[in-house]
Design a protein around this nucleic acid. Structure first.
Length: 303
DNA sequence: CTTGCGACCTGTTGGC
DNA sequence: TGCCAACAGGTCGCAA
């Protein structure tokens, strides 16, 4: 789900809410969502009581120093130097409720048809309680995500093994070009989605950026002209910044930590709009599979 | 090196 | 109305 703008939105809201707060309690409702230390976040995750105990014990009593982001990872850093790395994958959701909102019927109800929706208790897997009585809920319908505890000494090691590419918003155009030159034979969309090449872009923002730059998603990196690379680079930044400003794209499950929707969906030009007319030239938008993902594009204006 | 596909999960949607 | 395949903001491991 959440790509860079969504995780960045969560980061900013959560930092406001929990920086300086002490964790009073942690409830793990679904043990397999927990990862401890440098263990791999395996696809086939298993519940493990010992691991859960270690996780809970390590976290209780910690004071939040800051909330940060690297790629699509949300990082909650504690004052003692340890941290939580949370990855929301497709359907993860972080909802923060003040003490007086905890019985909010909004949170407990199932919004049947209205999308996006707050997830019912059924899909809550981890609950953090803070000293002022507020709580942070980790919800995830599909259970692809995870919450990882990393101790002080292992944070650097963990980031190294992840080997994430640079942050797109910190990138100058020369470095962006250098990245593409590393993968001359790959489809441009595959590179944009590759977290080891650039960290944070996912299916929505890849499609939207390629449309804005008038580049076909299956074009190979070596076939892009310098001017196209330049344009793509500026459009990526423009789109990510605009999306952050609007609180991200709420489609199905992503919501801001206060339960409100991000409104960037209204500005989507092509994502999820296959079969509709291109907003630029009116040609019917098509979709095809690139790098294993559905890619929507305009067959007329994306060359 | 590269792509492609199945897995991991649960829920919603669209076609018949 | 009911059923069932296809699909969904991600990523990994393995085959070819």
């Amino acid at each position: 789900m959440p790509e860079l703008p969504e995780v960045e939105t969560i980061k900013r809201n959560l930092h406001q809410a929990i920086a300086g707060q002490k964790i009073k309690n942690v409830e793990v409702l679904t043990e397999k969502m927990i990862v401890f230390g440098l263990a791999k976040a395996l696809l086939i995750k298993k519940a493990d009581k010992k691991r859960t105990e270690l996780f809970v014990k390590s976290i209780i009593g910690n004071v939040v120093a800051s909330v940060e982001r690297r790629g699509k990872f949300l990082i909650i850093k504690f004052k003692n130097g340890s941290a939580l790395f949370i990855h929301l994958r497709m359907s993860g959701q972080l909802i923060f409720l003040e003490k007086n909102k905890l019985s909010s019927p909004l949170f407990l109800s199932i919004a049947k048809t209205a999308k996006p929706q707050l997830l019912p208790i059924k899909h809550t897997h981890v609950v953090f309680s803070f000293s002022d009585g507020s709580k942070l809920f980790y919800n995830d319908v599909r259970k692809f995500g995870h919450v990882r505890y990393v101790s002080e000494g292992d944070i650097e090691v963990f980031l190294e093994t992840e080997n994430l590419g640079p942050e797109p918003l910190d990138l100058d155009s020369r470095s962006f070009k250098n990245i593409l030159e590393k993968y001359p034979k790959r489809a441009i969309k595959a590179i944009l989605l590759d977290q080891n090449a650039i960290a944070g872009i996912g299916n929505i923002y890849a499609d939207e950026s390629l449309f804005a730059a008038k580049i076909h998603p299956a074009r190979t990196a070596e076939k892009l002209k310098p001017a196209e690379i330049e344009l793509l680079h500026t459009e990526i930044k423009k789109i990510l910044n605009r999306a952050i400003k609007l609180g991200g794209s709420s489609l199905e499950y992503y919501l801001k930590t206060n339960g409100a929707s991000g409104s960037f969906v209204k500005e989507h030009q092509v994502y999820g709009k296959s079969g509709k007319p291109c907003p630029r030239c009116g040609t019917i938008l098509r979709s095809m599979n690139v790098a294993g993902r559905t890619s929507t594009y305009c067959p007329n204006c994306q060359k």
